[in-house]
């Protein structure tokens, strides 16, 4: 536990010091929220989902913020590899599992903090949270998304030599996961043939879970959401730990 905590602390220290990173990774979901939200609010009709488009968009943007930040935190291992710091950790008499879990905990925490900022900003542009339990539920889903995708980032970083493949991963893995997740539109409005694809996307369950917590309405049962994203985070942690164990420098 003490080692996991040590690595978590290092992640927190780095996070607090990188002001530009905090602002940088909050800006994209925030701009999406503002431009798409205000731009499409009067145009988009959401049959059966009550509220307006901005409120519909908030959970998606929170999930986006958590996911992008966590993937990025996981992939940071590559920088540690390139700048040599990873050696310092790997040559210490600690297990790789502890290092990986510490990194996951650190990445998930920063990601949830980033998502939380979007959540707070959303309160000023139309989101009403009346239910404390629902709010906490949303937080739980944010944590699960954070763990899943930090571990995912670590898994990728363990197999990559440098940052050159990062753009590829962003465009062909991360962005489709985000786009298909129902963060921007209700799943039910998609053509029937594409719905199964969205249901294969783990982030869908994260977004729906947060949506249920914040607005009380979702298209997938929150229990199913919890089971899927919970299972996914566990699976990713195991895969990430396995691949990280084999990392060579």
């Amino acid at each position: 536990m003490d080692i996991i905590y040590t690595i978590w602390v290092r992640n927190m220290l780095r996070y607090i010091r990188s002001k530009s990173r905090i602002i940088g990774s909050i800006s994209m979901p925030l701009f999406f929220l503002l431009f798409l939200g205000f731009g499409l609010n009067s145009v988009v009709q959401l049959p059966g989902l009550g509220g307006n488009y901005i409120v519909f968009l908030v959970p998606g943007m929170v999930a986006m913020s958590v996911m992008f930040t966590s993937v990025f935190s996981g992939i940071q291992i590559i920088w540690d590899k390139q700048f040599g710091f990873l050696k310092e950790t790997l040559v210490a008499p600690v297990s790789r599992l502890e290092i990986m879990l510490g990194q996951t905990a650190g990445g998930a925490t920063t990601a949830v903090l980033q998502g939380f900022m979007i959540l707070v900003i959303s309160l000023f542009i139309g989101l009403h949270v009346s239910d404390a339990a629902g709010f906490l539920l949303a937080l739980v889903f944010m944590v699960l998304i954070g763990i899943s995708f930090t571990a995912f980032g670590i898994a990728i970083a363990s197999r990559m030599e440098d940052m050159t493949g990062f753009q590829l991963i962003m465009n062909f893995v991360i962005f489709p996961i985000f786009g298909l997740s129902g963060a921007l539109f209700p799943i039910s409005s998609l053509p029937a043939w594409i719905v199964p694809v969205t249901l294969l996307d783990p982030l869908t369950y994260g977004v729906e879970g947060i949506r249920y917590g914040l607005t009380g309405v979702s298209q997938i049962s929150p229990v199913v959401c919890f089971a899927v994203i919970g299972g996914f985070s566990l699976a990713m942690t195991i895969i990430g730990a396995f691949l990280f164990r084999k990392i060579t420098i």
Binding site: R10, L13, R14, R17, F85, K87, E88
Partner: peptide, 23 residues
């Protein structure tokens, strides 16, 4: 190590402290 292995974002003390905790 031959190549530097410090965390440049941390202070000298924090780098030492991190190491001390790892051991």
């Amino acid at each position: 190590f031959q190549d530097q292995s410090l965390d440049e974002e941390l202070t000298a003390w924090e780098n030492m402290d991190f190491h001390g905790r790892l051991y």
